[in-house]
């Protein structure tokens, strides 16, 4: 049994992210971690649902939410999930340049999403005076959506750091799992957003 992983890019196996035991541990570890994250967001969703109608005289869900911007944000994030799939596809074929390119596009889309979210929050605060402190609904809204936004920020810092660190040396068995785990994390963020889009915005506009 060989323990000394070759990190020479010339003799890379197919799917370098799963070729080492460490790679497998990391991938599974992140899956497990996401199980915990699911509970975290479930609790935040529960809190939001319990408090969404407690506007305490401030703006309500129907007055606040608008479809346009949120739809754009959804498109941006869903697309970024797709581009990260392309990136991993190229990684499995050991095509480092294309992988970096698609990861770069993923990051740009993520930044676009984040910009929209910041604009959205600023809009609520300035136009409606709707803040974190104005009501229990405000606290719950900013906490739930803000936690998701925080995850996006963390994901972006992670992928940008990875891309910069490895831009010169290319793909190897040591860094391939890192890209792979990032992609998994990014899909999770996307799934959470789908729930936020449905539970917070769609349900908020209807009821």
């Amino acid at each position: 049994m060989s323990h000394d992983h070759s990190i020479d890019p010339k003799n890379m196996p197919k799917d370098p992210s799963k070729a080492t035991t460490e790679g497998k541990y990391k991938f599974m570890g992140l899956w497990i971690f996401l199980g915990g994250e699911t509970v975290l967001f479930a609790c935040l969703f529960g809190t939001y649902l319990a408090l969404k109608d407690s506007a305490a005289g401030g703006p309500t869900t129907q007055e606040l939410y608008g479809m346009g911007l949120v739809f754009l944000m959804t498109i941006l994030l869903l697309t970024s999930s797709l581009t990260s799939v392309y990136a991993i596809y190229h990684m499995k074929n050991n095509d480092f340049k294309k992988m970096q390119l698609w990861m770069g596009i993923t990051a740009l889309l993520g930044i676009g999403f984040l910009a929209c979210e910041i604009y959205e929050f600023a809009h609520y605060i300035h136009e409606f005076g709707f803040t974190f402190r104005s009501s229990a609904f405000g606290s719950a809204f900013y906490t739930l959506v803000g936690f998701h936004g925080g995850h996006v920020v963390f994901g972006l810092s992670w992928i940008i750091a990875l891309m910069v660190r490895n831009s010169k040396r290319g793909l190897n068995l040591y860094n391939a799992p890192k890209y792979n785990t990032f992609a998994l994390y990014w899909h999770f963020i996307d799934v959470v957003w789908v729930f936020i889009f449905t539970v917070v915005y769609l349900m908020g506009m209807v009821s």
Binding site: T47, F132, A136, S139
Partner: peptide
């Protein structure tokens, strides 16, 4: 994670003026 969330809400209420547990602002 449920405790994590609970502690965050408690922290926000005590330190940053949110209203999760403040009945006067609709909290519970």
């Amino acid at each position: 994670p449920a405790l994590t969330v609970g502690l965050f809400l408690m922290m926000f209420d005590r330190m940053f003026g949110s209203a999760f547990f403040d009945a006067a602002l609709g909290g519970n």
